[in-house]
Amino acid sequence: MTAPLTAGRRPALTAPLLEVDRLTKVFTTGSRRSGEPVRAVDDVSFDVARGEIFGLLGESGSGKSTLARCLLRLIAPTSGSVRFDGVDVLDLPEAAMRKLRARMQILFQDPYSSLDPRMTVREIVGEPLTAHTATSRRDREQRADDLLTLVGLDPTAGRRRPHAFSGGQRQRIALARALILDPDLVVLDEPVSALDVSVQAQIINLLRETRRRLSLTYVVVLHDLAIARYLCDRVAVMQRGRFVEIGAAADVLESPRHPYTRQLLDALPGRGRREALHGRAPGVAGPIADARGELREVVPDRWVRE
C-alpha cells in the first residue's frame, strides 16, 4: 500500500477487516425544492482490525447510525468506499452483496420491532440460514437451538413468539439470529439503549463473551460513554457527520483532546447534568464546539480535528 492513507486511517501490519475511506452520505430531505441537503456522514475514514471492538460515539443526530448502515450497504452512501476483507462492498452487484451479508450482520437498537411478531423464535433465529444455505428444517432448528443456548436462552424458548419475551431476552434472540451464520463482523446499533439499565450490563457482558468465543469483530454505535469505555478497544467521536477524534477508548475517554469530546464527557450521567437517561442520547450543554478543522494524528493512532 504505497498511496498515503487518508486522515483517520492507520497503516497496519495485517490487512484490516474493514477499511472505510472518505465515506459520505448526503440526504436530500423534504421536498426537493425546499429541503437543504444534509451531510449525515461527511468524509469519514477509518479501519477496523480483526477481533477489534470499534465504537462510534456521538449524540443523537450525529450520523453514527447512518454510518453504521452505510457500512453494511443498508443505506447506499453517496461517495467513498467500504472494503470488507478486501472486497469493495459498495461496488458489488446485488447478488454478490446478498452473499456477503452472511459475513456481516447487524444488531438493532430496538428488539421489539426488529423481530417479526408473527414468527416463532426458532424461525426468526433460523431465517438467515434459509437465505444463505440449503439446510433442512431439522438442521435449522438444531442450529437455532444451539445459538439460543449460546446467548443464554433456554432452547424451549424457540417454540414461542417474540412477544412472550422481555426486552433483554429479545435482544438475545436478535443476537442469536445475527450470529447463526457465523459472521466475521457484527455492527451493533445502540445494542442496549432500548433496554432497562438492569439488563444492559448482562447484554454487554454477553457481547463481550461471544466476541471472545467466536472471534468476532464489532463496530458498536453508542452514546453511553461509560459503556464505550468498558466495551470498546478504540472509539471515534462523531459530530455532525464528521469524526472529531479517533483513538484508543481509554485515551479518548480519559484524556479527551477535542472540546466536543469533553463536552460529551461532561454531559455523562453522574458527571454533570443528569438529563441523559436511557433511551436518549445525552445533550451537550452550552455552545457546541466547532467541528471544523482537519483530523491530525497528534500521537500515533490518535487523531484529533484541529
Partner: peptide, 15 residues
C-alpha cells in the same frame, strides 16, 4: 426495523 433486519441478513427480496 424488522424489514431492515431481514434485508441485513441477506434475505432475497421476493422472500
Amino acid at each position: 426495523p424488522l424489514i431492515e433486519a431481514s434485508r441485513a441478513i441477506g434475505l432475497p427480496r421476493l422472500d
